[in-house]
């Protein structure tokens, strides 16, 4: 019986390891190319290890002679701007949806549920027309505006606030706390795990988003990370693939590193997209 268990063990590792190699191959190739000298970038099939380390020049080009750093800064600005407005509007509204009886509450929640099914591609055309009419295309505002609304956040936080103990709310009200104070001093701190998870989801989604930036951004000054890498790839602006891969590494790194550092929270944050 023992040999059967051993065989199963070996077989399962073999399958997992083969899969793991396939999963990792693009990352390995990207990293290897990012330190490869330009003359070796192509035709490197049979000698994958670079003959000399050219990482310094490649990363220097990606960092100092390309739009990649600016795209990353823009990405950070856009992601944080979106997140700030999302939290500022969704948290109190979700609290209201969960705990405060107000006229139209049922309808609002119904709309939130409906909104969960609608991706950015649906309102994109009218929003684009409105931004074009007001001369706001190619601005940070245009990049962020459609995502200020987060029906997913509203839904998630509402579910969370529904589980918040009613007695604490009553006690707080008896102590003379206003609802504004209750939201920001009691409910929100209690919701920090959900907020953290939501933040991961939001930042990952908007750091990587291509559709909307591709539509509203035309100048390199407003490029987000995916646009930065596309512009860098476009042969009009650069021809060094080692540097291109260095740029791809830089743009991929923040999220991957965040994942490696805070794995549990990261996975929890992302798996909530499954709800969407």
């Amino acid at each position: 019986m023992r040999w059967r268990a051993l065989l199963a063990w070996a077989l399962s590792h073999l399958m997992l390891a083969t899969g793991a190699v396939l999963m990792l191959a693009p990352f390995v190739w990207m990293l290897l190319t990012s330190i490869r000298p330009a003359e070796e970038v192509f035709g490197a099939v049979f000698n994958p290890i670079p003959s000399r380390f050219a990482g310094v020049e490649n990363y220097a080009q990606a960092l100092f002679a390309s739009n990649v750093p600016r795209a990353m800064v823009n990405g950070a600005v856009v992601c944080l701007g979106i997140l700030a407005v999302q939290l500022a509007t969704a948290l109190p509204a979700a609290y209201a949806l969960a705990r405060l009886p107000f006229p139209g509450r049922g309808m609002l929640f119904g709309l939130v549920l409906f909104g969960l099914t609608i991706p950015i591609q649906v309102p994109a055309l009218p929003l684009y027309l409105a931004l074009a009419e007001t001369g706001l295309l190619d601005t940070f505002f245009a990049l962020m505006f459609p995502f200020f609304l987060t029906v997913f956040g509203l839904f998630l936080f509402r579910q969370f606030f529904r589980t918040y103990p009613e007695e604490i709310l009553q006690a707080a009200r008896l102590d003379g706390m206003g609802e504004f104070e209750i939201v920001w001093r009691l409910a929100v701190p209690a919701a920090l795990p959900a907020i953290g998870a939501f933040s991961v989801f939001s930042v990952v989604a908007h750091w990587n988003d291509l559709y909307w930036p591709l539509i509203v951004v035309t100048s390199t000054e407003r490029a987000t990370p995916p646009l930065g890498i596309l512009a860098f790839r476009d042969a009009e602006t650069g021809g060094n693939y080692g540097a291109l891969m260095a740029g791809a590494t830089l743009i991929t790194a923040p999220l991957v590193v965040a994942f490696l550092v805070a794995r549990r929270g990261f996975v929890r944050g992302l798996t909530m997209t499954g709800l969407k």
Partner: peptide
């Protein structure tokens, strides 16, 4: 009810204009 309406108003406004 008033507090609820006030809290929900910004999100509702966004829902109206963006969706």
């Amino acid at each position: 009810a008033l507090a609820g309406a006030a809290f929900a108003a910004p999100a509702a406004l966004l829902l109206l204009t963006i969706l």
